[in-house]
């Protein structure tokens, strides 16, 4: 393994790890933080739904789906820029 390649690998892993952390923060927000305050959030409404109920029944789900499609794109970009992507 050349030094150049191992630099790339280090950079690749740093960026991959940062991306992981960023996505887990978003995930934590929708999975736990929002749900914790459901009773309070129910006092406001969104599309006629009480927000606490809405987030558990629909809102967080959509957030997870969108987040994953974005993650796929971001991780693929990191792989390509660091030269460790699979051949197409």
């Amino acid at each position: 393994m050349t030094d150049h390649a191992s630099d790339n690998r280090q950079e690749h892993w740093n960026r991959t790890r940062n991306l992981m952390i960023a996505h887990l923060v978003v995930w934590f927000f929708f999975a736990y933080l929002v749900q914790w305050f459901a009773a309070d959030l129910n006092k406001i409404s969104f599309l006629h739904f009480p927000v606490g109920f809405y987030m558990a029944a629909q809102g967080s789900l959509f957030a997870f789906v969108i987040q994953l499609f974005i993650f796929v794109k971001q991780q693929d970009r990191i792989d390509r820029e660091c030269g460790v992507a699979e051949e197409d």
Partner: peptide, 23 residues
């Protein structure tokens, strides 16, 4: 409402699968 924890848990788990495990 308390039962919706299953709805959130059984979807959000896939974020962990994608980010930490599957690839």
């Amino acid at each position: 409402h308390p039962y919706l924890a299953f709805v959130v848990g059984w979807t959000g788990g896939y974020v962990l699968v994608a980010v930490l495990m599957a690839p």
